[in-house]
Measured scan of single mutants.
Amino acid sequence: MTTFKLIINGKTLKGEITIEAVDAAEAEKIFKQYANDNGIDGEWTYDDATKTFTVTE
């Protein structure tokens, strides 16, 4: 398992979430479901060097 981080730069929600996932594809699926569940819709980026996803509304 690898640790992945999501940085949320939303209009109403900001913060960071860290999860353990098998790979970046699994982490992205989990993070996008979390964002969808919380009404966050924005532009996604991923930095493989730091294993960090960012979503900006």
Rank of each mutant, 00 (worst) to 15 (best):
K29M: 11
A21F: 03
F4H: 05
W44P: 01
K11C: 07
Q33M: 14
Y34V: 08
G10N: 12
D47A: 11
E26C: 02
D47I: 09
D41K: 05
N9S: 10
V55F: 06
V22D: 08
G10M: 06
T12A: 11
T18L: 15
T2K: 03
L6F: 11
I7K: 14
N36T: 11
I30M: 06
K5E: 02
G15C: 04
N38D: 04
A25H: 11
T52M: 10
A24Y: 12
E20R: 01
E43V: 13
G42S: 04
E43A: 11
K51I: 09
A21G: 02
E28R: 15
E43H: 10
Y34C: 01
Y46W: 06
N38W: 06
F53Q: 00
T54H: 15
E26Y: 15
F31Q: 00
E57A: 04
E57S: 06
G15Y: 08
T52V: 08
I19H: 04
T56N: 09
T12I: 10
T52E: 03
L13T: 14
Q33D: 03
F4W: 06
D41W: 06
G39L: 06
L6T: 01
I30N: 04
G10P: 07
T54A: 10
D37V: 11
E16Y: 12
T12W: 07
T54V: 05
T18R: 08
E57W: 13
K29W: 04
Q33K: 13
I19T: 10
A49P: 13
E28K: 06
D41Y: 12
K51Y: 09
Q33F: 09
E20V: 09
I17K: 12
I40L: 13
I17P: 02
D23S: 06
W44A: 01
D48V: 06
T56W: 05
I17D: 02
N9I: 10
Q33G: 15
A24G: 09
Q33N: 02
E16S: 13
D47T: 04
Q33E: 04
T2M: 12
T52H: 14
G10W: 14
T2I: 05
E16D: 03
M1D: 09
T3G: 13
Y46D: 00
K11Q: 04
K5P: 00
Y34K: 13
M1Q: 11
Y46K: 12
I17V: 11
N9G: 10
A27W: 00
I7F: 05
T18A: 13
E43T: 13
G42Y: 03
T45P: 00
I40D: 01
G10R: 06
D48H: 13
E57F: 14
K14H: 14
E26R: 02
D48L: 07
A49L: 14
I7H: 08
F31E: 00
N38G: 04
E20Y: 04
K32Y: 06
I30F: 15
I30W: 13
K51R: 07
V55N: 02
T52W: 11
T2C: 02
Y46V: 02
E16M: 10
E43L: 15
E26L: 05
Q33V: 13
G10I: 14
T54M: 14
A27K: 00
K29R: 10
F53Y: 15
Y46L: 11
V22N: 11
D23R: 02
G15W: 09
T18V: 09
F53N: 00
K14G: 09
G39E: 11
L6R: 00
T3H: 11
N38V: 02
V55S: 04
E26W: 13
T45L: 08
D23K: 11
G42L: 03
K11V: 06
G15L: 14
T12M: 03
V55W: 05
I8H: 13
A27Y: 00
G15P: 15
I30D: 05
T50K: 10
G15E: 06
K32V: 04
I30S: 08
N9E: 06
M1P: 15
Q33R: 10
A35I: 04
T2N: 15
L6S: 01
G39Q: 15
T3Y: 15
L13I: 03
K14I: 07
F53S: 01
T2D: 10
T12Y: 08
D23M: 03
K5V: 06
T45H: 06
A49M: 06
T52D: 03
K5N: 02
E43R: 15
T56H: 10
K32Q: 07
K51N: 09
F53K: 00
D47E: 02
G42V: 03
E28W: 12
E20K: 01
A21L: 04
D37P: 02
D48N: 06
T52L: 11
K11E: 06
T12G: 09
I8M: 11
G42W: 10
E26I: 08
K29I: 06
A49F: 10
K32P: 00
Q33S: 13
T2Y: 13
D37L: 11
D48Q: 09
T3C: 02
T45E: 15
D47G: 15
A21M: 10
T54Q: 04
K51M: 07
A24W: 15
E20D: 14
T45F: 08
A49N: 09
T2S: 07
N36D: 03
G42H: 10
L6E: 00
I30K: 11
E20L: 04
G10A: 13
T52A: 10
F4Q: 00
A21H: 06
I7V: 06
A21V: 08
K5Q: 07
L13V: 05
N36W: 07
G10K: 07
D37M: 14
Q33T: 11
V55G: 01
V55Y: 09
W44R: 01
E57Q: 15
F53W: 14
A27Q: 00
N36E: 09
K5G: 04
Q33W: 05
L6M: 14
I19Q: 05
T56E: 12
F31Y: 09
I30H: 15
N38M: 07
A25F: 13
G42N: 04
T2A: 13
T54K: 07
I40E: 03
T54R: 15
K29Y: 07
F53A: 01
D47K: 13
E20W: 04
A21W: 03
Q33L: 12
A21E: 02
